[in-house]
Design a protein around this nucleic acid. Structure first.
Lengths: 340, 340
DNA sequence: TTGTAAGCGTTATCAA
DNA sequence: TTGATAACGCTTACAA
């Protein structure tokens, strides 16, 4: 545990050559004669040599590493997209380093600095909402940054994602079209979370367009989780005016809502409709299956990786890419009871 | 994008001091007087300076980085434990780097080398099954390695986890106790996956102990996924002897099985019982709720982090820790039909 | 309290 | 084809 790792020098000594030759064997094997090469490679194996990354980076100025900071790993949404992101990166010869911020802005900032310090060649961030100071920092560091899971052509950073507002608005229009007039909303905290905020705004926009008064929207904010979704649902059901539908900011909250409805003996969608956002596996497994907005997570991950690699390699300045979402109509959404 | 990042030298020049002083300001601020310090810190801010990790590591020989390689990110099981792992690490001042191997041994090996090269102070691996050569490599590198999600006191590496075999055996005993005599098994591929293998063996052990012939076990191996679980289930149902229960190697496969049962018009557990392993959120959400083995993922993550930090800091040589699992009896498991 | 200078382990440029 | 040797950006004795 405390034995120092072998260095290039150790290998060179053992093989009876110079460090330069060892380095060449490893990096451009054809520039070295066969006999020397095999001698060196043998020494490498014997010693279990592995090049020191720090030293290598210091001289090469490139780490072939991409950093990603996501709000949480404990979340199928990011996990799936990230897996695709990493697969694509790997194919381009890059390694992915992941950190999670637990949805806390100050932790995210710390992680950004940490990944930059570690020499990440590029960064993937989720959403646009953050302290401008951090953008200035990234600017001076000259590190390409891509935003995913959101799309905003006007934002300071290039994004590959979808329009959260538009997507949720489309779903809300459907909901209102079915005749719902009192709409419950369960949202993740909107502070420093543009995705959550935009989704709520999408619903507002749809309501306004349909001529519904502001009072017909009943909002509860809560942390991400099945349990918290259930609690928020119970809270909504306890209010004076009961909504006929509960639209949730994501599938996990929605599943919590459905669970709570079951526990309260309410029929979904007979007594109350529920919708989600993301279309993770949970959505099609829960009973009744969840009506939700389908997000092309894997495509977003892959495209983000391609885009970011291009930015890092200087081929392009970074092009915003908007992906389409679609609505998955499933059993959890129905028309409100006529007598309600 | 191509502007070189500011160096310690740049900061020193701007603040009109030596590089040593700048370094001291950053690392031991009390060894420098207030006036100088503020001058330096101002220059740091102006320039958006961030220390070069490579250079720093080269001299400090410590990265305060822990690497983890998991089979996949797209999986609530690892995600939850890993989130806890990272939270605990953060509290101890370590950064987590995650890589995923897509369940491929050769990719895992590549990732191990990559993380080692990046100067990870310690490594977290999943399960014990891998090429001995890689253990030799880790040995020569002198890097502490901890195995999680499995427990085996006899294995070459210290593990923090649970006994997959014992856990599954306990569940199987329950199943057999209910009267099941023909048991379907859906397992992840057991090649280089000791967890999967041990779970199957647990069932075998229980069957043998109950005097069931080997022929009463009907095994299908398939990749991880809801869809693949569904296909495997359909395959089992198509065989000459229909099992009365299908035990799955994990919850995701089990949910696929339940889904397929529904699609085939089979009642669970009336016509066929289904069990899982892991107790992820999916398990309690699916209808009917899934009987499964509860694994203390978060605790495992936290304890692994604590253990690994201790190993890295040389406080202890690493102590194996076995965590207890328990059985969650839910609606998906019942007694077989008497007439079956 | 601050500055000077010697490494840390690589890679790359020259010469040999 | 190979070997010296000078960077790379930082920390840390040691000197001042």
């Amino acid at each position: 545990m405390h034995r120092p790792a072998p260095t290039l020098m150790d290998v060179a000594r053992r093989a009876g050559v110079s460090t330069a030759t060892v380095s060449r064997c490893l990096n451009s094997p054809d520039r070295v004669i066969e006999a020397t090469r095999s001698k060196v490679l043998e020494a490498v194996r014997d010693l279990g040599y592995s090049p020191n990354f720090g030293a290598r980076v210091m001289v090469a100025r490139r780490t072939h590493t991409i950093g990603a900071i996501i709000p949480t790993m404990e979340n199928a949404i990011f996990a799936r997209g990230l897996q695709a992101f990493q697969e694509e990166l790997r194919e381009s010869g890059y390694t992915l380093l992941v950190a999670s911020s637990s949805y806390r802005a100050e932790v995210e900032e710390e992680q950004i600095r940490s990944l930059v310090a570690r020499g990440a060649d590029g960064l993937l961030l989720i959403g646009h909402d953050r302290d401008p100071a951090i953008y200035r920092f990234l600017e001076t560091q000259g590190i390409p940054v891509l935003v995913a899971w959101a799309f905003d052509r006007a934002a300071p950073l290039v994004s590959v994602g979808f329009d959260n507002r538009k997507a949720m608005q489309a779903l809300a229009e459907n909901v209102i079209g079915l005749g719902h007039r009192e709409i419950g909303l369960i949202s993740a905290p909107v502070k420093s979370n543009d995705r959550a905020r935009e989704r709520v705004e999408g619903i507002r926009a749809a309501a306004q367009a349909a001529g519904l008064p502001d009072s017909s929207l009943h909002l509860v904010e809560t942390d991400y989780g099945i349990e918290t979704g259930a609690e928020a649902f119970a809270q909504l059901m306890g209010r004076d005016v009961r909504p006929t539908v509960v639209m949730c900011g994501n599938d996990v909250l929605a599943v919590g809502a459905i669970k709570q409805a079951r526990d309260m003996g309410l029929d979904v969608p007979g007594d109350i409709s529920v919708t989600g956002f993301d279309d993770i596996e949970l959505a099609s497994v829960v009973c009744p299956a969840l009506t939700t907005v389908h997000v092309p997570h894997r495509a977003m991950g892959r495209r983000s990786a391609m885009q970011l690699v291009q930015m890092v390699e200087g081929t392009t300045p970074g092009q915003p890419l908007e992906l389409a979402t679609s609505i998955r109509m499933r059993a959890s959404l129905g028309a409100p009871r006529p007598d309600a």
